[in-house]
Design a protein around this nucleic acid. Structure first.
Lengths: 205, 205, 205, 205
DNA sequence: CATGAATGAGTGTTCATTCAT
DNA sequence: AATGAATGAACACTCATTCAT
């Protein structure tokens, strides 16, 4: 991990850095293509071209096309996951509404940052692929933690899994909805607030 | 010869009935293929084969491959929409919890009836296609109606659009989640009940 | 030929008239399609549609697609041939320049009447098909006759076949050229006159 | 390995030479197919097969089927054009009859070299395509040059464009006719001579 | 005879993947 | 490692033709 960089020569590091850069370039190329020319234009040859690498090199780093999408998904999830983790830590000792607010914000921001990407990505991958499941589990975990830590505040003895299940789905669905299907007359800010209010209402019921 | 034109009632309809049967056969073939052999096996020639019609006939009824998926979506949505409408009417004078329960049941049942189909279908269509939007609008409408009719019971003066937005997303997301991402230890029945409880909690908050 | 129309009952005539009308309709449909939508649009089904007959009926009158083009060619040639014959007869006792002028006019007019048709037709049929040969022979014949009848005026004893060969090609090529490849600065009338002059020069040389 | 880059002269050219060879192979394959099995056998897959390349390679060099025919035409025209140019230069200071004879020979030889190809090719391309026009212009130009340079010999003040127009059409038409529609009793040599005589007669009239 | 739904062999074309250089 | 020309299985789609009604 960090240790490779510390070893004497530093000879292997540049190679690995190059690799990572190539992988990044390929992943970025997919995103650019997806946004600029639509899903139909995302062919391996085109990806390689846009990434500025040869098609041969592309296959050096990814065994097949699907692997590229998987990697992209993973990267995307990790980014969201990261901001979730941060929200959780930052508000470890805040009141529940504040924490919820932070989580919802993180989620919406993640969607807002790259809305087309998110949309097109889900169209490209089987909806029950590993990553979807994985993401659900992570989000579920975030809420389990958040809820467990505030069991007293909530005065509830209900199954925390059940609560987390509902809360996680609410945040995901409403974040997505706030971004893409907001009805006229409901601002993004309004949707944010309403999402928090809804989850709170549920948890406190 | 000349007499055929004189025979009783529906001499023109068989032509149309046959058409409808062919279209049905094609749509059913897609579903069968999707379930039995996965999305990769859904080629136009294979569809025609499984449907028991010639590829030429298939193209007599659908201008291109995408049109087949669109038709399938439309059929699927209409089925869900139907059961939603029914729930709404059947519980026109029930108490809110009963109505909500009926709506959630209709939604989950629709997902449960053909879970793979639903899943694979969404993978095939751009997520912001007309039908997705259309369905969201329909669901939203169902809730607006349900909530408006019970404004007094809810003792609320909040924007019904806002309430409907949140409620609709909760139903859709949690129905889907109940079907596909239920955590171990949460039964389908439990998820159903919890979904209703959550929506109620929100509406009454 | 003419006799069928003279026979008693007249029962068969309408049927034959209908047939001829259908055939005409089909032939006209090809021309219309060719002109309006280009060669690519000329499919048997489309022809039938434009002609206002069913595809089945079309195949009642023509064994296959190629036969339609053949019939069209034949009709086209007969029209040109007709006007050629007329020119020949009308100027049976005119001087050579006048006759030549009449033939050239007939030829150019034939091209001018339906230039696209003529062009597209040649693109559709193998260039050495029967009809092309046939047409060449007819034109050749016309000139043989015209030249033979004026051998004294021409004071020539050269092989009339040779003269006819050259004259026929000149008239065909220059008529076509006058229509389609006239250089800027050369009017159609000018091209007409020049064609006559050129043939005369050759015949008198 | 590394040494390959150091070897003598043309190490980059093989890439281009290979390309040219492939293109040549494809073009030749079309000609072979056209001659051996007729126009109906000329499918892209068959071309690739006969050319000994994969269908994928074929599409690397030609965007679509039509482009192959266009390239073939261009090649064919350039060959004829070449021999025309040569005739013009070789007889720059010859008398007009000799020059005419050379041009007619070049034209007839071009047709004689590959008569079926020429015939089938014209059947494949719209008769007013760019190349046809282009060729007419070239031929016209050749004659303008030839005539202009001999204005004194011809003692003519007539519009050289008019003269060239007629002469060019005579050469083209009579060369083609000499090849394909020669009447019995007229030898190829006879047709050649007669063509020259006819053009001379016209120019001197 | 007319109809037009049905047929299916065959077409042009794409694109993930390989491998000689 | 990198390259990119070459590959070819597979696909969506067309259209001349048939035949049951």
């Amino acid at each position: 991990m960090g240790s490779t960089a510390r070893l004497g020569s530093g000879r292997r590091t540049p190679k690995q850095k190059r690799s990572r850069q190539t992988v990044q370039a390929i992943l970025d190329a997919v995103v650019r293509l997806l946004k600029r020319e639509g899903a139909g234009a995302v062919t391996t040859n085109r990806i390689a071209e846009v990434a500025g690498v040869s098609i041969g090199s592309l296959y050096q780093y990814f065994p097949d096309k699907q692997a590229i999408f998987s990697a992209l998904h993973e990267r995307h999830i990790q980014e969201i996951d990261q901001s979730m983790q941060t929200a959780l830590v930052d508000h470890a000792s805040s009141a529940l509404p504040d924490l919820l607010r932070a989580i919802v914000d993180a989620m919406i921001d993640a969607h807002a940052r790259d809305p087309e990407l998110h949309a097109l990505l889900s169209a490209q991958t089987p909806p029950h692929a590993e990553w979807t499941r994985h993401f659900a589990v992570r989000l579920h975990g975030v809420f389990r933690l958040a809820i467990a830590a505030r069991a007293r505040e909530l005065k509830t003895r209900r199954n925390p899994d059940k609560l987390a299940f509902v809360a996680a789905h609410m945040v995901e669905s409403l974040s997505h909805g706030a971004m893409f299907r907001r009805p006229p007359g409901l601002s993004l800010a309004g949707a944010r607030a309403e999402t928090v209010r809804a989850i709170l209402a549920y948890l406190r019921a």
